[in-house]
């Protein structure tokens, strides 16, 4: 007979509750030092900007856009792995994008309306952003990188954290999972 069976059910439950409470108290204590986050690399503020940015890159229409398909989660995950070399680019780039948004529209990027977000990104894309804090060409380079990574998240295998529910494969009418073609042709 093991220890657990010696304890009555009620006693066991109350012990469990104490346990849970204890954990949450500990968590609160930790909050003062480092916020608990589901993100591996990004801060909550960065996530807000990046969510808005990836949604501009692949917007929601009749099917899911990049934000809901998990692009930010994908990028966050890869930044701690194969994208490690791009950590600084994201940290700096998101900050500068926010500055450009404040400069031009006096509003945070994620709070801009859709049209103004698009206007700002088109200026960056065409290398026409003036009076900015970016080094020459750095804004376009940053945006190109985010486009590339967003595409990878959306069209790559869902196992990497994007392309939720195979949304892009369905959009492209691809067999998912792969169907063997042996009998389709003679």
């Amino acid at each position: 007979m093991d220890v657990k069976n010696k304890i009555s059910r009620r006693k066991f439950l109350s012990l469990s509750l104490v346990g849970i409470g204890g954990i949450s108290l500990l968590s609160l204590g930790a909050l003062n030092k480092k916020p608990i986050s589901k993100w591996r690399f990004f801060t909550e503020n960065e996530v807000l900007i990046l969510d808005a940015l990836v949604e501009q890159i692949i917007p929601t229409d009749e099917s899911m856009g990049a934000r809901d398909a998990g692009a930010t989660n994908f990028i966050d995950k890869q930044l701690m792995g194969p994208y490690q070399q791009f950590q600084k680019d994201y940290r700096d780039g998101l900050k500068l994008l926010q500055q450009s948004s404040m400069e031009k529209f006096n509003s945070k990027f994620e709070e801009l309306n859709w049209e103004n977000q698009t206007i700002l990104l088109k200026l960056i894309d065409k290398d026409e952003l003036k009076h900015s804090h970016w080094e020459k060409g750095a804004d376009k380079k940053f945006f190109s990188m985010v486009i590339r990574h967003t595409m990878q998240s959306f069209y790559g295998s869902p196992k990497h954290g994007g392309n939720k529910n195979n949304v892009s494969y369905k959009m492209l009418k691809l067999d998912t999972p792969i169907i063997i073609g042996q009998n389709r042709y003679k």
Binding site: P59, G65, L121, I147, M151, Q152, Y155, S168, L172
Partner: peptide, 20 residues
């Protein structure tokens, strides 16, 4: 699919609704 996202005629946007 990802490879195809970079296959565009000149002038065709690489992002936004037009991309999709």
């Amino acid at each position: 699919p990802y490879q195809f996202s970079e296959i565009r005629p000149k002038g065709e946007p690489y992002w936004g609704l037009k991309h999709k």
